[in-house]
Design a protein around this nucleic acid. Structure first.
Ligand SMILES: [Mn+2]
Ligand SMILES: [Mn+2]
Ligand SMILES: [Mn+2]
Ligand SMILES: [Mn+2]
Lengths: 217, 217
DNA sequence: TAAAATATTTAGATACCTCTAATTTTAAAA
DNA sequence: TTTTAAAATTAGAGGTATCTAAATATTTTA
């Protein structure tokens, strides 16, 4: 159907498309795709020819309905494979992203529906992100950044924003994991750092950490 | 490491390389790869530059040691994925080849060693073909074509030569499967067709069938 | 608002993989 | 052994995806 590059671009646009009003900029896409702005312009034109995005020169790019649909199917595959790697093959959550980045491009309807069944229809991936169903539907959880909590507020860790191996290994090292309860013991107004209580340990963390942890209150 | 095309070519050369004395011909490779002879010549030159094959113009192509090693790793991956699809995802043996053709190119040492473990180190794929270990070693089974058996000889079905969905579905339809015992009740000298006893049924089969079934006596 | 800085696009090039058509080499037939 | 047929290679080209450098548009700053 679509090339590996086209699929990766659609996924990147989906992830960058936060505000529905503003299009995704060429530079932002270049940064996300680890490529040059000129390459992005070329690809965006091609995607536009295939009606996967809406694009007007200098105005940024938007996913069309079919582009969004395609992106969600890739994301579905990516996250199902991540679950498989962690649940069945003993990968840790910081090792799965790179491999899933390749597996998500395998073309087989049956493969992904059978994998979904084999995994017992998981709703979230190892990083707490929702897994779209075969129609592309998924629940958007109401979650807050840890950074936005104030003193004495508490909740459950339900996701991470940064999924880089470096960040995830830092969390592992400090026994910070999905599902654990976190309470803000103290918040330093000067630099935003927090003293948090997580299970039976207390720990001081910077905004680099608090801005990348999602909490459900 | 190597491109998808390079990997597929190496695998094809491995499969066509039956006689170690004669090189694989350009036309045979073109047929196997579903491409044109001129494309094959180009690719073979490239593989030769990378020392994956030994190639002299007009003399056919041979795998080098490193080419053979690479081919065996792809074949290992292909067959492990086939086992996964059949054992874990309820694919039938005629549906796995096409998907495995893509999965075999995923680049991750850990993925394949963990998959091997998850499947409990299988020795053969769903078509009876041996699965090379991490070093590329595998046992060559002593097997005979059903076509080469004579009247009253019997043995166990241990493999198929033709792995096309058409042939495999024919076998399914007639309850012919790996592991079953087959006895030659009668062999027609005129066209080579056979009357065979398989479990509790007897069946007449053509040379199209007998030349694609491997028996262990 | 005019100048400067930044963002984006275009022009021109390369690597990869494939094709058709023409040429060359090798093998088979007369 | 010469001629003919088949196999293989080369020449030239196109599509994809990428790059650098140059040109153009937009945004910011003065
Ligand atoms: Mn990807
Ligand atoms: Mn994830
Ligand atoms: Mn393949
Ligand atoms: Mn097989």
């Amino acid at each position: 159907m679509f090339s590996l590059s086209e699929e990766n671009y659609l996924k990147a646009i989906f992830h960058l498309q936060t505000h529905p009003k503003a299009g995704v900029s060429t530079n932002a896409l270049a940064e996300e795709m680890q490529t040059k702005a000129s390459s992005v312009t070329d690809m965006v034109k091609k995607l536009s020819d295939k009606h996967l995005v809406i694009y007007k020169k200098y105005q940024g790019v938007y996913l069309s309905d079919s582009g969004r649909e395609t992106a969600l199917q890739i994301i579905r595959k990516h996250r199902l494979w991540e679950v498989f790697l962690v649940e069945k093959l003993d990968f840790s959550w910081d090792e799965v992203h790179e491999v899933a980045e390749e597996l998500e491009h395998i073309k087989s309807e049956k493969l992904i529906s059978e994998l979904d069944k084999f995994l017992d229809y998981p709703k979230r991936d190892p990083h707490g992100d929702p897994i779209p169903d075969a129609h592309g539907d998924f629940q958007v959880a109401n979650k807050t950044l840890l950074a936005d909590l104030t003193k004495e507020e508490k909740g459950t860790l339900v996701g991470v924003k940064d999924t880089s191996p470096e960040f995830l290994k830092y969390l592992d090292k400090n026994n910070i994991a999905l599902g654990k309860t976190i309470e803000v013991l103290d918040k330093e107004e000067f630099d935003g750092s927090m003293l948090i209580q997580i299970e039976d340990q207390s720990l001081r963390v910077s905004t680099m950490v608090t801005a990348n942890i999602f909490i459900k209150i």
